[in-house]
């Protein structure tokens, strides 16, 4: 299970700073659009390195065969 975390700071004037963490790929843009719709208008947006990571999980199976010699 992936953990999605959002930190929201509402300033005394009502301006909102949102930090979306743990959401890779376009998933974070969906969160961004959703939160923008709730609050009002987008003033600024910065994508961080995690955004560019693939949102599909890569799985590696390691198998070890034990032989009794």
């Amino acid at each position: 299970m992936a953990q999605h975390e959002v930190e929201i700071v509402i300033s005394p004037s009502g301006e909102v700073k949102v930090h979306i963490k743990g959401v890779k790929g376009k998933g974070c843009l969906e969160y961004a659009a959703w939160l923008t719709e709730i609050v009002g208008k987008l003033k600024d947006q910065k994508l961080t390195s995690e955004y560019y990571e693939p949102d599909t999980k890569a799985r590696i199976d390691l198998r070890q065969e034990l032989r009794n010699e």
Binding site: G14, E15, V16, K17, V18, H19, I20, K21, G22, V23, K24, C28, L29, Y31, A32, L35, T36, V39, G40, K41, L42, K43, D44, Q45, K46, L47, T48, S49, E50, Y51
Partner: peptide, 13 residues
């Protein structure tokens, strides 16, 4: 980190 947004509020409702 994924993304950081700054949003301007609209009081609508």
């Amino acid at each position: 980190m994924s993304t950081v947004l700054v949003l301007v509020p609209i009081v609508s409702g």
